[in-house]
Amino acid sequence: MEVRTIKVFTTVDNINLHTQVVDMSMTYGQQFGPTYLDGADVTKIKPHNSHEGKTFYVLPNDDTLRVEAFEYYHTTDPSFLGRYMSALNHTKKWKYPQVNGLTSIKWADNNCYLATALLTLQQIELKFNPPALQDAYYRARAGEAANFCALILAYCNKTVGELGDVRETMSYLFQHANLDSCKRVLNVVCKTCGQQQTTLKGVEAVMYMGTLSYEQFKKGVQIPCTCGKQATKYLVQQESPFVMMSAPPAQYELKHGTFTCASEYTGNYQCGHYKHITSKETLYCIDGALLTKSSEYKGPITDVFYKENSYTTTIK
């Protein structure tokens, strides 16, 4: 009895394709271990004539594949690729409408935090270190965002349907971005203890939790000093293409032309909904596939993004 075979390709990165001759009487799992086709788990399936010449994702289970996976995804987590594939199996079914010149995501599976993050990423200057993220990001900007969303979920250790947080998501993504040249110098002034300067680099240099107003941050924000008295913390120097200011959701007025974009969060910790506000020729609110415009805006804002380049204080 002759062994019926077909020729397929296996890959971990969709760049390096490895030619395989597979036995049609055995499952993919018996031949390769966990195997995925377009995100779908085909591990328990036997090869079919229609699979001839198709590319299958496999887990990096030998040295060659491990090197290829690390170079593309910059992670050695053995569960990463499987999590990416199972997320992709959902995100490829989502709709990605162009809204006001940006790629958004039609609401499904509690994905409003991903839509808000995706919209924000198209408006701030950011370059990702893992080629996987950078490639998928370019495709997302062009309207094909399924891979990018699935990668975000995998890097953030999230599953489809789980509630997510924009600030946490951005923080994970910033860790995989090139923020080497970003720098922030802060000064804390206390009447009792004097003053202390701190220099922050990388992710810490672009994120701040405690106030939404970048102007206020430049002037000074009140913080408790270690001595128990009130101290003032203010920005001395900022070198970065953008800054992200966050605070627990509270009524906040966004003035046209003073910011790049913002995240609105309605609801409580267990259950809520994100919308995205962007400042173009007027203010726009993007909620999944829905767009509304207004000249002014007041609502429960939790993150505001500002364009920056270089700032030095005039406070002496």
Score class of each variant (00 low, 15 high):
A145D: 05
E264L: 00
N110W: 08
D41I: 10
L88I: 02
L81A: 00
V3P: 14
F80K: 06
T169F: 02
E162V: 02
E168C: 07
R83D: 03
P224I: 12
K298L: 10
S263N: 12
N268F: 00
M85R: 09
T159M: 04
T103D: 04
Y208N: 03
Y208P: 01
I152A: 08
H51Y: 07
S79M: 14
H51A: 07
K158V: 05
K54S: 14
S294D: 00
T103N: 00
Y297R: 02
Y265P: 05
H256M: 13
I315P: 15
A132P: 04
T192F: 08
R4K: 15
L291N: 08
T43C: 07
V236K: 06
Y155P: 03
A117W: 02
A108E: 11
E215T: 08
V42E: 02
N61W: 12
Y137C: 06
N110L: 00
V22T: 12
Q251N: 15
G299A: 08
D287C: 00
N147I: 08
V22F: 04
L17D: 13
V160A: 03
E215M: 05
N89F: 13
L163W: 07
V58Y: 06
A231C: 04
G272D: 06
H48R: 12
G33W: 03
L235N: 02
G272I: 00
T314P: 10
W94T: 03
T313S: 14
M24F: 09
G228A: 04
L118Y: 01
I223D: 07
E125S: 09
L65G: 11
D77M: 06
Y208Q: 04
I277E: 01
V58L: 11
Y36K: 04
N187I: 08
R139H: 11
Y297N: 07
L153G: 04
T260Q: 05
D77T: 06
N268D: 14
T282V: 13
K298R: 11
Q238I: 03
M170H: 02
I152S: 01
Q230K: 11
E168L: 11
Y297S: 01
A250K: 11
F56D: 04
G82L: 14
A132N: 06
L254W: 05
K219W: 03
I6T: 12
M24E: 13
K275V: 09
A117I: 10
V22C: 14
C285E: 08
Y306N: 00
G164F: 04
S246Y: 01
M207F: 03
W94S: 07
F174E: 00
A132M: 00
K191Q: 12
C190I: 03
I6K: 07
I124G: 09
P47S: 05
H273D: 00
T103V: 13
V42R: 06
N49A: 13
V67H: 15
P97D: 11
E2F: 10
G210S: 03
